[in-house]
Amino acid sequence: MTPITGIPLSPPVQPSLPVQPASHPVGAQPFKNVLLEALGQVNTMQTQANEAVQQLVTGGDVNPAEVLTTLQKADMSFRMMLQIRNKLVQAYQEINNIRI
């Protein structure tokens, strides 16, 4: 009868790679910056559209079709931003409703 010897434990698991803090892949930005930039762009387009309409009604040398296209682009980007905002709010509310 052999004496009970200790059970050898396998050596503790060593991480195969050194641990790094989570870093951004090259070229990406924080999501907040992306959102703010997009809001700024929508605002710029709205201002441009307003200016184009003002120029047209005060007799400026601008093409009516161009003015209409600018207006529609501004409209569309505003609605897109509104939809994105709605989805974000919805996602936030869903997360809030998660029962721990």
């Binding site: 309409v53 047209l56 009604v57 009516p64 209409l68 207006l71 409209d75 505003f78 609605r79 509104l82 939809q83 709605n86």
Partner: peptide, 22 residues
């Protein structure tokens, strides 16, 4: 007609913003 259409469009945009319904 141009002024009327643009004005209607602006009103609709404001309404969209207020109602938050795209």
């Amino acid at each position: 007609n141009f002024a009327l259409t643009v004005m209607t469009d602006q009103f609709k945009l404001l309404e969209t913003a207020i109602s938050e319904r795209v």
